[in-house]
Design a protein around this nucleic acid. Structure first.
Lengths: 146, 146
DNA sequence: GGATATTAGTTGTTTTTGTAACTAACAAGG
DNA sequence: CCTTGTTAGTTACAAAAACAACTAATATCC
């Protein structure tokens, strides 16, 4: 019996965080997967564009801490699906500005609605205060400014 | 500007959880990766065996909610590294009991030490009460009995 | 202006994962 | 026993991720 040791696997935060993240993602995943054939990165890119408006791949990458190759491929897929448009920056012709098409906007709004519902359902298990603490701590752990 | 809408991406729990999980895993990952050439699943299997003692692949899978193929491959690698032994169950010759070798035990203890340290460092950013709430909530979200 | 370094984004190749189909051992019902 | 069903674990193949090398545009500094 090693369980008497004052450190158990189930208390290890990276472990707990990963398990909770996986579990919580599962339920929402099927919305963007089954319904729009999206991958997680695609959904994140879509959400960033919908949430913050037009921006470049670079910007999305640094905001969401996603590697540029992943974004590049996600944008290619979203563009195929006619969810985003890509327009070259006239001043710096390496960069391109990504924006949602009406179809992309619609998908975003639909998914956003489901996300909100999903989030609400999760939060319902806890008190308002607990949820506030959780969000604050997760933002801190994720390295996102409050 | 969509930011006025009462739902922002940074507040979406699955997103926050994933970001926090990734971020928090990064620092610890290098211990088992660089030092023992392990993958995440390998480290989890090692930890389960070290923490709870001998058990079968099936048991690890249901405890940690890891798919059996992942475990199968992790066990194969750990066995190659001479960190675990596999002994057939005499009563049910399909199952095999996994246990740590002395080398596996040593690796486990070393990693466990680092994990503990790592965990402590993370927790230091918050109050004891906050950490308790976080753990309680994550266990709940992860579907682990309190 | 021209060599050199950076940067935005892409493409190619290797690992790792996910999924499905498989083997071998056991279990139950007839 | 002997079909049918179930379970523990493996293997094979497809999807996705990680990593490195690449192109093309821009910036720097002499």
């Amino acid at each position: 019996m090693n369980e008497k040791d004052d450190f158990a696997l189930q208390d290890f935060l990276p472990y707990l965080l990963n398990r909770a993240a996986e579990e919580s993602s599962l339920g929402f995943q099927k919305h963007y997967k089954n319904r729009y054939g999206m991958l997680r990165t695609e959904w994140r890119v879509l959400f960033h564009l919908g949430n913050y408006g037009q921006m470049t791949a670079k910007e999305i990458g640094s905001r969401a801490k996603i590697h540029k190759t992943k974004i590049s491929r996600a944008v290619a897929k979203l563009s195929e699906k006619r969810f985003v448009t890509r327009t070259r920056d006239e001043n710096d012709r390496r960069a391109e500005h990504l924006a949602l098409t009406p179809a992309g906007e619609a998908a975003y709004k639909d998914l956003r609605e489901h996300a909100l519902e999903f989030d609400t359902r999760i939060c319902a298990r806890f008190t308002t205060g607990e949820v506030a603490i959780l969000r604050y701590m997760l933002r801190n752990l994720a390295g996102i400014e409050p």
